[in-house]
Amino acid sequence: MRRTVAAFVIVIAMAGLAVAGELTGTAYGSGVTIAEPTPIATLLAKPEGFVGQKVRVDGVITGVCEKRGCWMQVTDPDTGQGVRIKVEDGVIVFPYESMGHRAAAEGTFEAVKLTPEQVTARAAAAKEAAAGAAAAAGEPCEKAGEPAVKAGCDAPVQNDTIYLIRGTGAVIQS
């Protein structure tokens, strides 16, 4: 066990610290290479204009995929607007305990249109959640159905579309 712990510590040390703008922390994937972040509010104000572009966003991690760490939500603490950073399962794993930490993340901005069935199911689930304690718990809307995007069934939706970033890297403040 001692050897395992020692190896764990060495690996952590080898992972080193990464710097993204003014943010210093642990790098995930290819880290952050874009110098200037795009404000999330700007991104979501006219999302279609950013689709297909590589962008960087900064903010606070307000959600992480609980089982696989395969997505995280970065939210601008000033506006409350957030965007999901979806990564390939196992390629990058965001730690669940990183919630509340500041992060910079980058990748390709993408739009995923929901089917009419998914829109209806999500609306019903959101209404149900808002009526009960689940709204506070932020429980995933199991009844809403998970679109192929696999970014969590409670991913923010705008105009029946989930806007997300296909993440290639991130820096999470320790």
């Binding site: 939210t75 603490p77 957030g82 919630m99 509340g100 930490h101 304690a133 506070a136 718990a137």
Partner: peptide, 23 residues
């Protein structure tokens, strides 16, 4: 660690290994 007003009806308070979601 941080406090975020996710929506008018929801506040999130993040502590060390503890997250509060407030209605």
């Amino acid at each position: 660690t941080s406090v975020v007003r996710m929506a008018p009806h929801q506040l999130k308070v993040f502590l060390d290994h503890r997250n509060l979601t407030v209605s």
